[in-house]
Design a protein around this nucleic acid. Structure first.
Length: 813
DNA sequence: TGCCCGCGGGG
DNA sequence: GTGTACGCGGGCA
């Protein structure tokens, strides 16, 4: 008998001799990889019988045989559970193998004595982690005998296995990968046709670029192999030698690994990199996933989009942009479009550049992984599922699997996912959202901003908003009136959903206390963020059509209370003489009655009257803010404003500044105009600036780069029904012998002349600076971006800058 | 206003 | 794999 302490990293299950067993792959505390096999697992699901009936005997008779596989129910246990927070008598129905659950559940549901079946669609490994109370990436103790298995790591057959505390696997071995492929002239990538030219790997003190064309190089990391097939073989070998816990890439679910998968098949190379010698599996269409048994494949892009996107400046998520913002460095500067040519001509100097480029991508990915893994791992620990799954779950799934684990702990049976019909019905349920106050367009100074701390979670916790607590007959709880009716929630019992959220809020508060005392552990910070994200996602989950715990009345009550609380704040502020500038859902923007009043004191007074965990925060003073009107109307635009913070930074909300198909000059001008207005507060300065831009445009003073419009082709040229400007540009590229197709980047400028815009389109390399059309850029790019902003000051830029209105202009200046 | 389509990331 | 689980924004009617 041996004892191992290890951190589970990945898991799978197998049926051996008609019995299922779970394989947990991980690393021991002493740093060895290990597989712990747990045979003590029983597949099951729940049955709720019809009132007073007992289907047990019918259930035990049930069996099915298909494709040589026997499916049967082996045992039935009566259990006292809860369903939607009400006590229920249920049966726990055990089957011989996991597949039997799926095979038999429909027949079971069809029995006349059966009301419903539950939890019959929970993947076996996920069920395992929930029922055993084992958390991936967290220390587990197992006792058992070593056994010989066809695995890349030693195996132990467990007699006993249990969670050994909260100790986290903080230093997993990470291997980042990146590939370069052969792509003739900017064409959409086609894995079936074009080989992989290079594979880069980066790990801890490890870097390598594999390639199959020999060229002169001084770089020790470049390794030459005779063919693409040999590169793939060597790639497998290096993974086996490095023994990573995590393999990672940037968009490796959607590109690198699926591409490697196709090329390996093409070259007849088995990709048996799994720790059980199973092949790399690529599943899904459109949104593909790549999975390796025993190793956690983490797509860094997914982690960043899910957990970092909201707080990031960039709204494009290319490796270059993301690494630039998070690591302060970018990709190796070389034009990727030249790779195929360099490869064909065996251009050693360029190929060296591309090897460096390839390696740099892998290194950036490795460093990004180190940076973002704490956030992924904290979610793994909180939700209790595998990193591979957590990496690919959306927030609704994270909420749901967290709830599933809590349901098990609290003896609740999980509701079923809705069928197609129910989903459609739910989708048509319209939900009234947050209150948005229409701002009066204008430039405001000294704006105080207050917002509710986690408004919806705190409402749900404070009012016990939970599916089974609604309109109880036992107490006189506060009521909320909604378009769906009047609701209240029991004050005597704690609800399932509300209890979970209260727990999340209080856990986070404890962590924030520790952080406030000067602890800067990145895992704690990540944990606090994860708890907050999870709590904030619950409200959306309650109104999400696919959710098991979908309860529109709860979602409706939550927003109704939200509107009530924010309205209370607005009215109270008004009574105290403050002016309301704007409000959206959980925040209020106000200008104070007089400068000596303190917004903090106001916030404190509000807080004295708030129930439970609800709290209004003073967010800060902003020296200036601008609110604009809706197109062609006097009304203030909602969710569209710009603020200047005390540090002099601009916070721009809702302006379409960053659309890719805007020229740089249009984006820059809009931003600069807002900046001048907010910092100098003199519209005439902004107008002077605008005039200077327009004058310079008219004289073609800006370099061509400022007026290039970027866009992308989405389909084959022949499939376009209308020739838009970008299609005209693509046609020209084709005339010049370039291959264009779906995915091709199109860059063009609009030049002078009469007629349709598409007839005036030129490629940047064929246009001169003096050729671009000032009128197009003034009237189609610059003015639309600043029109609403100048409206605020009664300035109609179109009047000022159209030719017939030149007299107006001279009047102004 | 609502529906459909296609992108995103990658070379 | 106890499957068949994206989400948003632009373009168009």
């Amino acid at each position: 008998m041996v004892t191992v302490q290890f951190y589970p990293v990945d898991a799978t299950y197998q049926v051996v001799n008609g019995k299922p067993q779970v394989y947990l792959f991980g690393r021991t505390v002493s740093g060895e990889q290990v597989c712990v096999i747990d045979p003590a697992v029983e597949p099951y699901f729940y049955v709720i019988p019809k009132n007073g009936e007992d289907p047990t005997n019918d259930l035990l008779k049930m069996r099915k045989e298909e494709r040589g596989e026997h499916y049967r129910i082996v045992r039935v246990e009566p259990v006292q559970k809860k369903y939607l927070e009400q006590p229920v008598h249920a049966l726990k129905v055990f089957t011989n193998i996991p597949q039997a659950v799926a095979e038999l559940k429909d027949d079971v549901r069809a029995l006349p004595s059966v009301q419903s079946t539950h939890e019959a669609d929970i993947l076996f490994v996920r069920r395992y982690f929930i029922d055993k109370g084992i958390t991936p990436f967290t220390l587990v103790t197992a006792e058992g005998e070593p056994v010989a298995e066809q695995l890349r790591v030693p195996a132990i057959r467990a007699k006993k296995i249990e969670q050994a505390g909260e100790d986290t696997f903080a230093k997993p071995k990470v291997l980042a990968l990146d590939i370069e492929t052969y792509n003739p002239a900017g064409k959409h990538v086609v894995a079936e046709q074009h080989p992989i030219l290079m594979i880069a790997l980066a790990g801890d003190d490890f870097k390598k670029v594999l390639t199959w064309k020999r060229f002169e190089t001084a770089e020790p990391y470049v390794e030459f192999l005779p063919s693409e097939a040999d590169v793939l073989d060597r790639f497998k070998e290096l993974i086996a030698e490095y023994r990573p816990d995590i393999i990672t890439g940037y968009y490796s679910d959607g590109f690198d690994l699926p591409y490697i998968r196709v090329r390996a098949t093409k070259n007849r190379i088995p990709l048996d990199i799994g720790l059980d010698y199973s092949e790399l599996r690529v599943t899904g269409r459109g949104n593909t996933k790549a999975q390796v048994t025993g190793i956690a494949h983490v797509d860094v892009l997914r982690v960043i989009r899910k957990f970092f996107a909201k707080t990031m400046e960039t709204d494009i998520f290319t490796l270059d942009a993301v690494a630039g913002e998070l690591l302060g460095k970018g990709k190796h500067p070389v034009d990727i479009n030249k790779l195929a040519g360099a490869w064909d001509q065996n251009d050693a100097a360029l190929l060296n550049e591309f090897a460096a480029y390839n390696l740099q991508d892998a290194l950036l990915t490795y460093e990004l992984a180190q940076l973002v893994l704490p956030n992924l791992i904290e979610f793994v620990k909180i939700v209790g599922q595998l990193p591979f799954d957590i990496n690919r779950m959306g927030f609704s799934q994270l909420v749901e699997w967290y709830a599933m684990r809590q349901a098990f702990a609290l003896n609740e049976i999980a509701p079923n996912k809705p069928g197609y019909q129910a989903q459609m019905r739910r989708r048509s349920d319209r939900l009234k959202g947050g209150l948005v106050y229409e701002p009066k367009p204008g430039l405001y100074t000294d704006v105080a901003v207050c917002d509710f701390r986690s408004l919806y979670p705190s409402i749900i916790a404070s009012h016990n908003v939970s599916p089974g607590m609604r309109n109880c007959t036992c107490c006189d709880a506060p009521q909320i009136h909604t378009d769906r009716g009047t609701f209240w929630f029991c004050q005597k019992r704690k609800g399932f959903v509300s209890g979970i959220i209260e727990d999340l809020i209080t856990r986070r508060a404890r962590i924030k206390d520790i952080l406030k005392k000067g602890n800067t552990d990145p895992l704690l910070l990540a944990r606090s963020q994860a708890l907050k994200d999870l709590a904030n996602s619950f409200y959306g989950y309650l109104g999400f059509a696919m959710a098991r715990w979908y309860t529109i009345e709860c979602a409706e009550s939550t927003t109704a209370w939200g509107r009530q609380y924010i309205l209370d704040v607005i009215e109270r502020a008004r009574k105290e003489g403050h002016h309301i500038v704007y409000s959206d859902t959980d925040s209020v923007f106000l200008t104070l009655a007089d400068q000596s009043t303190d917004a903090r004191a106001f916030v404190e007074r509000v807080n004295r009257d708030l129930p439970g965990l609800m709290e209004l925060d003073f967010e800060g003073y902003y020296p200036a803010g601008i609110f604009v009107s809706v197109k062609a109307s006097e009304a203030g635009a909602k969710k569209k404003y710009a603020l200047l913070n005390p540090k002099g930074q601009l916070k721009i909300v809702g302006f379409e500044t960053v659309r890719r198909n805007w020229s740089p000059i249009a984006k820059d001008t809009q931003r600069k105009v807002l900046e001048i207005l907010l910092t100098e507060r003199k519209p005439e300065h902004a107008l002077t600036f605008l005039k200077s831009i327009i004058d310079d445009l008219k004289q073609n003073k800006f370099p061509l780069a400022a007026v290039i419009i970027h866009t992308q082709l989405s389909k084959e040229l022949s499939e376009y029904e209308n020739t838009g400007p970008h299609v005209a540009a693509a046609q020209r590229m084709q005339e010049l012998g370039q291959t264009v197709g779906p995915g091709t980047q199109i860059r063009y400028v609009v030049t002078k002349g009469k007629g349709r815009i598409r007839d005036k389109v030129k490629l940047p390399e064929e246009a001169n600076q003096d050729e671009y059309d000032p009128d197009y850029y003034i009237y189609n790019q610059i003015l639309p971006g600043v029109e609403r902003i100048f409206d605020v000051f009664g300035i109609n830029v179109n009047d000022y800058f159209t030719e017939k209105a030149q007299s107006n202009l001279s009047k102004f200046f």
